[in-house]
Design a protein around this nucleic acid. Sequence first.
DNA 1: CGGCTTTTGCTTGTTCATCGACAAAAGTGC
DNA 2: GCACTTTTGTCGATGAACAAGCAAAAGCCG
Lengths: 409, 409
Amino acid sequence: MSLHDPARPSEESPAERVFAARAGDLFQLLRDGRPWTRAELAGTTGLARSTVAGRVDLLMHSGFVVSVGEALSSGGRPPSRFAFHPRARTILAADVGASHVRVALTDLGGSVLAEERAQWPVSDGPEAVLGHVVDTCGRLMAEAGCPPERLAGIGIGLPGPVEHATGRPVKPPIMPGWDGFDVVGFVQAAFAVPVLVDNDVNIMALGERAGFWPDVEDLLFVKVATGIGSGIISSGQLQRGADGTAGDLGHVRVARGEGVVCRCGNTGCLEAIASGAAVARALAAEGVAVASGAEVIALAAGGSLPAVQALRQAGRDIGEVLATCVNLLNPSVIVIGGSMAAAGEHIMAGVREVVYHRSPPLATTNLRVVLSRAGERAAVMGASQLVSQHVLSPAGIEAALAGSAVGVG
Amino acid sequence: MSLHDPARPSEESPAERVFAARAGDLFQLLRDGRPWTRAELAGTTGLARSTVAGRVDLLMHSGFVVSVGEALSSGGRPPSRFAFHPRARTILAADVGASHVRVALTDLGGSVLAEERAQWPVSDGPEAVLGHVVDTCGRLMAEAGCPPERLAGIGIGLPGPVEHATGRPVKPPIMPGWDGFDVVGFVQAAFAVPVLVDNDVNIMALGERAGFWPDVEDLLFVKVATGIGSGIISSGQLQRGADGTAGDLGHVRVARGEGVVCRCGNTGCLEAIASGAAVARALAAEGVAVASGAEVIALAAGGSLPAVQALRQAGRDIGEVLATCVNLLNPSVIVIGGSMAAAGEHIMAGVREVVYHRSPPLATTNLRVVLSRAGERAAVMGASQLVSQHVLSPAGIEAALAGSAVGVG
DNA sequence: CGGCTTTTGCTTGTTCATCGACAAAAGTGC
DNA sequence: GCACTTTTGTCGATGAACAAGCAAAAGCCG
């Protein structure tokens, strides 16, 4: 802040210390993963060395922080260094898609330790699907030799609107039987740990950011697959909107879709002309034998000109909507993900072409439009992130410290 | 949170108290304006009565809280009640428009105590315009008999992109000479108080929310005047985007604008067909003698059918873009403001027509599209809010308490 | 190999916030 | 008018957090 506040003339010694009152706050400094010495911590927080030493002791006993050898000596005894230990606990992350379920075991840093994917239609209903999730969770834990008390929490992504606070799906269009289902309760019957649920696109945005854009405060993740959706991170925070339906790009109207009927009932929706299914349909109408978005991608990879052109056009259509998003949200990174992102540069070229042409110069000088780097793992990474955000927050650490100290592997 | 955290079995007495550690935090409870008794505060915070009593004493000495008589006795000594005292300090709020300057003196609750408006083109440059602002500020303070030490801060809205953190305009299109100007420094040379600067549409959103939608977390304020812009409040927080240009609705492409050249150089911008100037131009081309948006409104008020139709069409065009915003941001309230909002229901009818037709049912069941209630005062109310947010935050209150205690009027 | 430097662990004393109790104040109800 | 109830302000006690000081440990440097 560049503000001048006349109330405080110059004596700042007591006010500066407001910072790290508890061990949980001190831990936030260590979360960056870099090793710290006690002296460095004392210096940046302004706390006494003895205080810092006590806090660090506490954190090391809980296992969240471990010693990582010594730093170079500067003429005297070398300082010992320690850092956040992501392996202190594990997280179960589940990505429930329209027709598949992916479950991963990750550490607190989001690194995937084990993973399993299965075909499983979400239309089978919550008990069946979540039953499978719970089974797989148990199996992954057992195989990895991870005792239950090491489990920090479970994150779950669902392919529809979710009321994040309660973890219940809200009138999801493609999840029959799931409306209002108590996902948290069901899962906690098997694992007595925090369970966090969110929309799949939202957690993909979280995952992509946590893994590859940690310093970006305004990021838009666009999922292009059977449908089209987005997760919005503004001011470093996931934005869910009033009803948890924010980021619904699929049913935004685009000029070129005029007259095309969408599955939502309206006409002109982006999804009706640029989703994987829509592109395949358009090509099939031209006489090209394709039945799905995946086949279009395969064709384009093989050099088929119509397929390449169709993908590029889909990119332009998406870009049309993204240009509006840039005007509206002014993100610094737009990430294109989802299964259709496998078409790589074909779609990207179309997106970039329109976005950079249609957006105001001030908002595009710092704008990057990139392909997802997390790929298929974006969702489980995000689900893991959802949990680690919760568990590693100052309050979460305090709670863990107050509870039993769990040993580290 | 409905989360089950096994780390804490049942003994919650020390953890519950984490809440209100300082007087600034306790003050946040009192900010609602309702009167509280000490017992109520102790009950909701879990603090001891004696502790609460001390905090309240501190706050009353600073003047931010005053006694407001006694509550009804329930058989014993009646409890004394106290509440936030908005008159404890005053705020200067300036709304710099393209061709006018409005300066208001408000209290901490945002109530306007005195106000002055003058024609003053922003193109005269920062020294001239801000010189006028500072002069007017001084005059308002003197006339209201407000001593300098009662002034809590100054909020300023400017008609262009502003880097909020530094208070400097960033390449503003209609403010020659203002690019990068140190607004904060200039004003603080005259008044040694916090000075907060932001985009005018952003503060209008803040003002509308603070005054009329205090409980709404997701609000979109749309200003329709010479240009078209918006201020976005998501998760209760003003969203400025990566470069401070978020909410720029004016240059979003709309289908009906195809081929119409906008002042920004692109074609198809919303502003080129739906702003006050654009509507007037369109009517003039049809042979109706109008030169400005204000004249169109006057004509429509007089019953001119072409004017009414033109306004309604502008509403539809704006609604087209707002439907996209609803998909993207899922707000619970959209407020239409700016000078063209004086056309009232003509524009609103068009907006509602399209928004409710084009947006998904889940996002519109709780959506309200309303006219600005703050009207011309939205900007100064928002500027005031910008300052009060800063000053009445826990940290702000702590700082004020640490400084000198100022008497109350 | 010994002096020097730097970190570390421990201990001690101080400070500060909070709590609980108690007596005075200020009402109600009989 | 008196007993009872409820709030209020004050006071001492408790306990946690913190800063400072000191000796030991563990490396550099000559």
